[in-house]
Simulated assay, not measured.
Amino acid sequence: MEQARRARNVAVFLFEQVEPLDFAGPFEVFLSGSNEGQDFNVYTVAANNCPVKALGGLSINPAYTIADCPKPDILVIPGGWGSRKEMNNDTITNWIRGISNDIEVILSVCTGALILAKANLLDGLKVTTNRLAIHELREIVPASTEIVEAARYVDNGKIILSAGVSAGMDAALYVIEKLLGIDRAIEAATIMEYDWRRD
Protein backbone atom coordinates (compact mmCIF):
# COMPACT_ATOMS: atom_id res chain seq x y z
CA MET A 1 0.00 0.00 0.00
CA GLU A 2 1.31 3.42 -0.92
CA GLN A 3 2.33 5.48 2.09
CA ALA A 4 0.16 8.54 2.65
CA ARG A 5 1.90 11.80 1.73
CA ARG A 6 2.38 14.25 4.56
CA ALA A 7 0.46 17.48 4.41
CA ARG A 8 2.21 20.18 2.42
CA ASN A 9 3.36 23.09 4.58
CA VAL A 10 1.82 26.36 3.35
CA ALA A 11 3.65 29.38 4.80
CA VAL A 12 1.79 32.67 4.46
CA PHE A 13 4.26 35.50 4.97
CA LEU A 14 3.24 38.59 6.94
CA PHE A 15 4.77 42.05 7.23
CA GLU A 16 3.77 45.50 8.43
CA GLN A 17 1.05 47.13 6.31
CA VAL A 18 0.22 43.93 4.45
CA GLU A 19 -3.13 43.95 2.62
CA PRO A 20 -5.50 41.80 4.75
CA LEU A 21 -7.21 39.90 1.94
CA ASP A 22 -3.87 39.29 0.19
CA PHE A 23 -2.86 36.96 3.01
CA ALA A 24 -6.21 35.96 4.53
CA GLY A 25 -7.73 35.03 1.15
CA PRO A 26 -5.09 32.43 0.17
CA PHE A 27 -4.92 31.29 3.83
CA GLU A 28 -8.64 30.49 3.71
CA VAL A 29 -8.36 28.86 0.28
CA PHE A 30 -5.64 26.44 1.36
CA LEU A 31 -7.46 25.80 4.63
CA SER A 32 -10.71 25.05 2.78
CA GLY A 33 -8.87 22.83 0.32
CA SER A 34 -6.84 20.98 2.95
CA ASN A 35 -9.21 18.05 3.49
CA GLU A 36 -9.39 18.93 7.19
CA GLY A 37 -5.64 19.44 7.42
CA GLN A 38 -4.65 16.20 5.72
CA ASP A 39 -3.25 17.84 2.59
CA PHE A 40 -2.22 21.35 3.67
CA ASN A 41 -0.77 22.59 6.96
CA VAL A 42 -1.39 26.34 6.73
CA TYR A 43 0.44 28.79 8.99
CA THR A 44 1.66 32.38 9.14
CA VAL A 45 5.29 33.45 9.35
CA ALA A 46 6.96 36.83 9.80
CA ALA A 47 10.46 38.23 10.18
CA ASN A 48 10.09 38.24 13.97
CA ASN A 49 7.55 37.22 16.58
CA CYS A 50 6.05 40.67 17.19
CA PRO A 51 2.41 41.27 16.26
CA VAL A 52 2.08 42.46 12.66
CA LYS A 53 -0.19 45.40 11.86
CA ALA A 54 -1.91 44.98 8.54
CA LEU A 55 -3.57 47.81 6.62
CA GLY A 56 -6.46 49.25 8.59
CA GLY A 57 -4.78 48.46 11.91
CA LEU A 58 -5.64 44.75 11.93
CA SER A 59 -3.18 43.08 14.30
CA ILE A 60 -2.03 39.52 13.61
CA ASN A 61 0.18 37.29 15.73
CA PRO A 62 2.37 35.25 13.36
CA ALA A 63 2.61 31.57 14.26
CA TYR A 64 6.32 31.39 13.40
CA THR A 65 9.33 33.49 12.48
CA ILE A 66 11.56 32.97 9.47
CA ALA A 67 14.11 31.49 11.90
CA ASP A 68 11.86 28.76 13.32
CA CYS A 69 9.05 28.05 10.86
CA PRO A 70 8.48 24.56 9.45
CA LYS A 71 10.10 24.14 6.05
CA PRO A 72 7.55 25.49 3.53
CA ASP A 73 6.43 23.49 0.50
CA ILE A 74 4.28 26.42 -0.63
CA LEU A 75 5.15 30.03 0.15
CA VAL A 76 2.58 32.83 -0.20
CA ILE A 77 3.98 36.36 -0.49
CA PRO A 78 1.13 38.88 -0.20
CA GLY A 79 1.19 42.55 -1.13
CA GLY A 80 0.04 45.81 0.37
CA TRP A 81 1.63 49.18 0.99
CA GLY A 82 4.22 47.58 3.23
CA SER A 83 5.69 45.63 0.32
CA ARG A 84 7.38 48.83 -0.89
CA LYS A 85 9.43 48.86 2.32
CA GLU A 86 9.93 45.13 2.74
CA MET A 87 11.18 44.66 -0.83
CA ASN A 88 14.32 46.48 0.37
CA ASN A 89 14.63 44.39 3.54
CA ASP A 90 17.62 42.14 2.91
CA THR A 91 16.69 39.83 5.77
CA ILE A 92 13.41 38.99 4.06
CA THR A 93 14.61 38.84 0.47
CA ASN A 94 17.64 36.74 1.43
CA TRP A 95 15.40 34.33 3.32
CA ILE A 96 13.01 33.96 0.37
CA ARG A 97 15.85 33.49 -2.08
CA GLY A 98 17.61 31.05 0.24
CA ILE A 99 14.64 28.70 0.59
CA SER A 100 13.30 29.13 -2.95
CA ASN A 101 15.13 26.14 -4.44
CA ASP A 102 13.50 23.74 -1.99
CA ILE A 103 9.95 25.09 -2.36
CA GLU A 104 7.37 23.44 -4.60
CA VAL A 105 5.33 26.59 -5.31
CA ILE A 106 5.84 30.29 -4.59
CA LEU A 107 2.68 32.34 -4.96
CA SER A 108 2.80 36.13 -4.94
CA VAL A 109 -0.34 38.20 -4.52
CA CYS A 110 -0.61 41.79 -5.73
CA THR A 111 2.58 43.76 -4.92
CA GLY A 112 4.17 40.71 -3.36
CA ALA A 113 5.71 40.58 -6.85
CA LEU A 114 7.90 43.55 -5.85
CA ILE A 115 9.41 41.48 -3.04
CA LEU A 116 10.07 38.55 -5.38
CA ALA A 117 11.66 40.92 -7.88
CA LYS A 118 14.04 42.24 -5.22
CA ALA A 119 14.80 38.64 -4.20
CA ASN A 120 16.04 38.18 -7.80
CA LEU A 121 13.54 35.43 -8.59
CA LEU A 122 11.75 36.88 -11.63
CA ASP A 123 14.49 36.84 -14.27
CA GLY A 124 13.06 35.52 -17.55
CA LEU A 125 9.57 34.92 -16.14
CA LYS A 126 6.09 36.13 -17.05
CA VAL A 127 4.80 38.25 -14.18
CA THR A 128 1.84 40.32 -13.08
CA THR A 129 0.72 42.37 -10.10
CA ASN A 130 -2.04 44.78 -9.10
CA ARG A 131 -2.97 46.89 -12.16
CA LEU A 132 -2.17 50.07 -10.19
CA ALA A 133 1.36 48.86 -9.44
CA ILE A 134 2.43 47.61 -12.88
CA HIS A 135 4.65 50.67 -13.35
CA GLU A 136 6.42 50.00 -10.04
CA LEU A 137 7.11 46.41 -11.02
CA ARG A 138 8.35 47.46 -14.46
CA GLU A 139 10.97 49.69 -12.83
CA ILE A 140 12.65 46.87 -10.90
CA VAL A 141 12.38 43.67 -12.95
CA PRO A 142 15.15 42.57 -15.34
CA ALA A 143 14.77 43.26 -19.06
CA SER A 144 14.19 39.54 -19.59
CA THR A 145 11.01 39.61 -17.49
CA GLU A 146 7.70 39.85 -19.36
CA ILE A 147 4.95 41.81 -17.61
CA VAL A 148 1.46 40.52 -18.41
CA GLU A 149 -0.90 43.35 -17.52
CA ALA A 150 -4.25 41.74 -18.31
CA ALA A 151 -3.75 38.41 -16.54
CA ARG A 152 -5.55 37.41 -13.35
CA TYR A 153 -2.56 35.16 -12.62
CA VAL A 154 0.40 33.70 -14.51
CA ASP A 155 2.08 30.32 -14.00
CA ASN A 156 5.82 29.90 -14.52
CA GLY A 157 5.94 26.42 -13.03
CA LYS A 158 7.29 26.97 -9.54
CA ILE A 159 6.54 30.70 -9.37
CA ILE A 160 2.96 31.87 -9.81
CA LEU A 161 2.04 35.55 -9.63
CA SER A 162 -1.41 37.08 -9.31
CA ALA A 163 -2.95 40.48 -9.78
CA GLY A 164 -4.59 42.40 -6.94
CA VAL A 165 -6.34 41.19 -3.79
CA SER A 166 -9.11 38.72 -4.78
CA ALA A 167 -6.98 37.49 -7.69
CA GLY A 168 -4.81 35.88 -5.01
CA MET A 169 -7.73 33.65 -4.05
CA ASP A 170 -8.21 32.67 -7.69
CA ALA A 171 -4.51 31.86 -7.97
CA ALA A 172 -4.54 29.85 -4.73
CA LEU A 173 -7.44 27.78 -6.05
CA TYR A 174 -5.43 27.29 -9.24
CA VAL A 175 -2.51 25.99 -7.15
CA ILE A 176 -4.86 23.50 -5.48
CA GLU A 177 -6.09 22.43 -8.92
CA LYS A 178 -2.50 22.03 -10.09
CA LEU A 179 -1.48 19.93 -7.08
CA LEU A 180 -4.63 18.01 -6.15
CA GLY A 181 -6.94 18.23 -9.16
CA ILE A 182 -9.88 20.30 -10.31
CA ASP A 183 -12.41 18.53 -8.10
CA ARG A 184 -10.57 19.55 -4.94
CA ALA A 185 -10.29 23.16 -6.12
CA ILE A 186 -14.00 23.31 -6.94
CA GLU A 187 -14.79 21.76 -3.56
CA ALA A 188 -12.72 24.45 -1.79
CA ALA A 189 -14.45 27.23 -3.74
CA THR A 190 -17.83 25.69 -2.90
CA ILE A 191 -16.99 25.50 0.82
CA MET A 192 -16.15 29.22 0.73
CA GLU A 193 -19.15 30.03 -1.50
CA TYR A 194 -16.62 31.80 -3.68
CA ASP A 195 -17.13 32.58 -7.37
CA TRP A 196 -13.80 31.34 -8.75
CA ARG A 197 -12.53 33.24 -11.79
CA ARG A 198 -10.29 30.81 -13.66
CA ASP A 199 -9.06 33.24 -16.38
Rank of each mutant, 00 (worst) to 15 (best):
I186K: 15
V10Q: 00
I106L: 12
F23T: 03
F13K: 04
S144T: 14
L55A: 14
L21F: 10
P78A: 05
G80R: 10
A151G: 06
P26Y: 02
R131A: 07
D195W: 07
Q3C: 13
E193I: 06
E193R: 12
I147N: 00
R197N: 15
E136M: 14
D102L: 07
G56C: 09
R198V: 11
A117E: 04
I147R: 07
G57P: 15
E193G: 10
N130F: 06
S100E: 06
A167D: 04
D195R: 10
G164M: 00
Y153G: 10
R8K: 15
G80T: 06
A63S: 15
T65Y: 13
L58F: 11
G37Y: 04
I134L: 08
W81P: 12
W196M: 04
G80K: 00
D39W: 01
V127I: 03
G25Q: 04
C50N: 14
E149I: 01
K118F: 05
S144F: 03
G79S: 03
F13C: 09
N156F: 00
M87L: 02
E2I: 13
A150L: 15
I103N: 07
D155A: 01
G57N: 12
G164F: 02
S166P: 03
D73K: 02
D102M: 00
R138H: 11
F13Y: 06
D170P: 13
M192R: 15
G124F: 15
N94G: 02
E193L: 11
A171P: 08
N120T: 09
G82M: 10
A113R: 04
L116R: 01
Y43K: 15
P72L: 03
N101P: 02
D68V: 04
I99E: 03
R184Y: 13
R131P: 08
S144D: 06
V45F: 06
P51S: 04
I103C: 14
S162A: 15
G80C: 05
A4F: 00
F30G: 03
E136V: 09
E177V: 11
I147E: 07
S34H: 09
Q38C: 04
I160A: 00
L75N: 13
V105K: 15
N61A: 09
I92D: 07
S32N: 08
E28Q: 14
L180S: 07
Q3L: 13
E104H: 10
F30S: 02
G57S: 10
D22C: 03
S166N: 09
A47N: 12
V76P: 03
V29T: 12
A119T: 00
I66G: 05
S108T: 06
A189Q: 02
